[in-house]
Design a protein around this nucleic acid. Structure first.
Lengths: 330, 330
DNA sequence: CTGAAAGCGCTTACAG
DNA sequence: CTGAAAGCGCTTACAG
């Protein structure tokens, strides 16, 4: 900017006014400075601008990994932001502290919301956060009160397990997700509810706790399946984990869905590609992202604060990984 | 930071030294300041730090849209950066100027590389750019000399069209991509090469120019197919466009692959899900992202500059959208 | 209509 | 070992 000012023979203050289209600059000066800017290919520094200003028209998104789930969410966010005047900065950490380190999202949030962004979307956070700018969580932490958007996990999980029961399964294993998340406990509650409705008692030996990280499901699935009294079906609280169950089943020589039915949750693109394709609960991650972005822009532009908890419908998608127990495949 | 300094009773200079682990601070002061930082939940502002420092350990990625292609690339980038000590900032514009506006990537690059990032990855740029920090392009502009990673588009396109010829097709339509991209012209060259090898003359009426944006393919496909002398197969330079061709064919009452074979390029996840599934050339977008991130970190840490053009292999994936011409489906 | 100056939150020579 | 001061690139009252 000082270059532009020098070449144009004006002060940086004037250049700044021209760049920002402020009133009170003579037309001829504006034209001259514009030409100089063009000539020098100058572009204001996002960093310096955001340090000085309160408003940046940039929204942030903080995620702790970049799997299919996040990718789908992002597509929805971008759709909502298209033409909104807001740019998006996505900050993904490279695991220096380890994503498990407590409060990493708070750290990232502080780094961004100091001045860079006008507000942030948090994807499946690990803990509660506080911020001076608006924050919207996708799949918030349990008992959190911040604005959020979530799928109707309870209904979805109930339907998933209900589907298995409808097929004739009675011994249904469950691999739970990271317990700090509201979504995880809702899915677990759905599991209980569906069994209760069918008058089936919960066998604690059939319930294992993962944390949504696909790999955590491997030993759990092995423990569940490598027993004489194994379940005839497993409901995993996420597709990532369900796909790992599929791997373990194959490794143990079990045929899916003949020897074991598997249901996941999410409906990530990979689920449709699996062999057999995974029966799952479709929570439109695209929609989650879209709604989160809408909510955030509303909050940033000063919509009335308060309870903003959006709940989105889900849909059971039946594919090849489920069948009545003991079926022989044709 | 001034809060921390005040509470801890030291200067901000000392706090800064503690935060950055610099030598020359007494152990007791370090401990005390650390405790205060902890207590106040302080985190240094990315913006202020990057404005002052030359090095930020943050890499940037600039993309003009966020479709499946970009999502796959990102997964690869993240994989490469995991544990590298670099964080990633993705900057996506919200179309204020319109992404078509010339030089938008240069603008974004300036905004980021001013001080925020140590280097940037550019995904399918529209024009050449210059930057004070290293830049790696994924699918660079034609005749560009900046470090880049590209798939072997020529071989892939040749194989795709060769596959159609092998099935017995002679009238093969082609929908080209955005001509400014090296990838687009290589794919077109592959089309010519395969036809030449089979001794088939290129019919200019069968070649149409899109720009990789899926929607641009719709009128082109319609023009190609809504004619008595229509081709028996179409090769589209991207899956996004190929899937639109599929839509148009359906709309015109043509059955795929009976009345029309279709081949795409990319192998985005959606291609496997289409009905029928799309035959395409798999350029591992994940791998493109991975290699780009590796190359960029190498450049940022001061690896020898020079020609860094990575070429990645591709693979033809045959699915249901191609068959011999005039086949009747069983 | 325009410029000199302060300050956003940091880091880093320079003194002490 | 620690602090006062300058400065990164901007914006914005405050003067003129």
């Amino acid at each position: 900017m000082s270059d532009v000012a020098r070449v144009a023979g004006v002060s940086t203050a004037t250049v700044s006014r021209v760049v920002n289209g402020h009133y009170g600059v003579s037309a001829s000066t504006v034209a001259h400075v514009r030409a100089t800017i063009e000539e020098l290919g100058y572009e204001s520094s996002l960093v310096a601008t955001s340090l000085r200003r309160s408003r940046t028209n940039v929204l942030g998104l903080v995620a702790h990994s970049f799997e299919s789930y996040t990718a789908e969410v992002l597509k929805g966010v971008m759709k909502a932001l298209k033409g909104s005047g807001y740019d998006l900065i996505i900050y993904v950490n490279s695991d220096v502290y380890g994503t498990d380190a407590d409060g990493w999202e708070q750290r990232h949030l502080n780094r961004l919301s100091g001045t860079l962004t006008d507000g942030c979307i948090l994807v499946t956070p690990w803990s509660t956060v506080h911020s001076s700018t608006p924050v919207v969580a996708i799949d918030p932490v349990k008992d959190s009160t911040i604005p959020s958007v979530t799928a109707d996990n309870l209904t979805g999980a109930t339907a998933a397990v209900g589907h298995l029961i409808g097929l004739g399964h009675r011994r249904i294993g469950f691999i739970a997700g990271r317990s700090s998340l509201q979504a995880a406990s809702s899915r677990e509650e759905g599991y209980h509810r569906a069994l209760a409705r069918a008058g089936i008692a919960v066998d604690p030996g059939l319930v294992r706790r993962g944390d949504f990280q696909p790999d955590t499901a491997v030993p759990l699935a092995r423990a569940l399946l490598d027993s004489p009294d194994r379940p005839t079906a497993i409901f995993a609280a996420s597709d990532g984990m369900a796909l790992k169950v599929l791997d373990v089943a194959r490794e143990l020589g079990l045929s899916v869905p003949d020897d074991l039915s598997i249901v996941g949750f999410d409906n990530v693109p990979e689920s449709a590609l699996a062999q057999p394709a995974l029966t799952t609960v479709d929570q439109s991650m695209y929609q989650l992202g879209y709604e989160a972005a809408r909510l955030l822009t509303a909050l940033v532009t000063g919509a009335p604060e308060g309870a903003h908890q959006v709940l989105l419908p889900v849909k059971l998608v039946v594919r090849g990984s489920t069948a009545p127990p003991g079926t022989t495949h044709l």
